[in-house]
């Protein structure tokens, strides 16, 4: 299969869906002529024209709200927000409007709205441009939370997002845009709520999403050299969460490490851990390990930035702990 970049896969999804459905349109800062800060929307203006591909002023609350309103009226907007950090300006529209509308209207009102944005640390862009904020959206009933780690998933999930009827927080990662992977041409749909096993293994389940998936895969490769076979499970969508696949993996390995880039406190990892202990307590041979960001804003200094979010070695150490392997025993081996 041909390999393309994550950002190209996203573009392909938008392009195909705009082609397929004239109700799909996209607005955002610098997305039209310039093609977006991450080049996801390059070429769309030329192809679909200024009606359906529009630049906005710097007005995040307004543009998110306008997107939600358009969705309520039956169109299928994609609102691109440069950084998830800036989505905070539009929280009322996401939390109080988009998320609530279906229930408040007794089911008649639907909000087929997609907010595409990106988060994560590692760019040297400091505390206001580096957050992983999925837990905020995860907490709000009514929002779907999608965090693709691979180009093929990015395409399939975005295409699915543009065909379903609920508000979607489509959270990309700034480090993934240039990563390459095999992506099917044409129709390729990944439904929400279907986890993907990125690497099978019998010894320990490592649950990770977004940019933590490549990191978990690196850790798994290193662990394999020690004779430890880690199974890397990528939920792909946090809401809805594929607990079935997660629990089935836990039943096979009996040991769990959950890796999230976001700060530990109040995070999605803690919630997944609570679901596992509730549903599969007797399957567990060790306490669930959580590897997460420190409970701090992200610092600018490169070394401090690295120290603030999980690294490969943190995942390796957590897997060993889950397997009750002492660091000394490894050293002696």
């Amino acid at each position: 299969m041909r390999e393309i970049m994550y950002r190209e896969a996203l573009r392909e999804a938008i392009d195909e869906e705009m082609q397929r459905n004239s109700d799909v349109f996209i607005i955002g800062e610098g997305i039209a002529e310039r093609g977006g800060s991450y080049k996801v929307t390059e070429g769309l203006l030329a192809k679909y024209g200024p009606r359906r591909v529009r630049d906005t002023p710097i007005a995040e609350a307004g543009m998110i709200g306008v997107g939600v309103g358009a969705a309520i009226a039956g169109a299928r907007p994609i609102v691109e927000i440069l950084y998830v950090d800036f989505a905070m300006l539009g929280m009322d529209m996401l939390v109080n409007q988009a998320a609530k509308f279906r229930l408040m209207t007794g089911g008649d009102g639907r909000v087929p709205f997609v907010m595409r944005t990106q988060g994560g640390a590692g760019g040297g862009v400091a505390a206001q441009h580096s957050q992983s904020l999925e837990a905020l959206f995860y907490h709000i009933p009514g929002l779907k939370v999608v965090m693709p780690s691979a180009p093929a998933d990015a395409k399939g999930l975005l295409k699915y997002a543009l065909r379903q009827d609920d508000p979607v927080m489509f959270l990309e990662h700034k480090h993934l845009y240039m990563t390459k992977g095999p992506v099917p041409e044409g129709e390729h749909i990944v439904e929400f709520g279907k986890a993907d096993i990125k690497r099978p293994g019998r010894d320990v389940t490592v649950i990770a999403w977004s940019n933590m998936v490549p990191r978990a895969l690196e850790a798994a490769a290193a662990l394999a050299e020690e004779g430890i076979e880690a199974e890397v499970v990528d939920p792909r969508t946090l809401v809805p969460l594929d607990t079935e696949t997660i629990l089935a993996s836990v039943a096979r390995t009996n040991r769990v490490v959950i890796v999230q880039e976001a700060v530990r406190r109040g995070g999605v990892a803690s919630d997944i851990a609570s679901i596992i202990q509730e549903e599969a307590f007797y399957e567990l041979d060790a306490p669930i390990e959580i590897v997460a960001g420190l409970n701090i804003p992200i610092p600018f200094n490169l070394e401090l930035e690295k120290a603030s979010v999980p690294q490969k070695d943190d995942v390796i150490r957590a897997a060993r702990r889950a397997l009750h392997i002492q660091p000394m025993a490894i050293a002696a081996k």
Binding site: D23, A73, A75
Partner: peptide, 22 residues
């Protein structure tokens, strides 16, 4: 719809107008 959040109807209405234009 009515709205429990003061001011929220304005962006929502502009959104409906945008949908109509598109």
């Amino acid at each position: 719809g009515a709205n429990g959040i003061v001011g929220a109807g304005t962006p929502l209405g502009v959104g409906a107008a945008l949908a109509a234009q598109i």
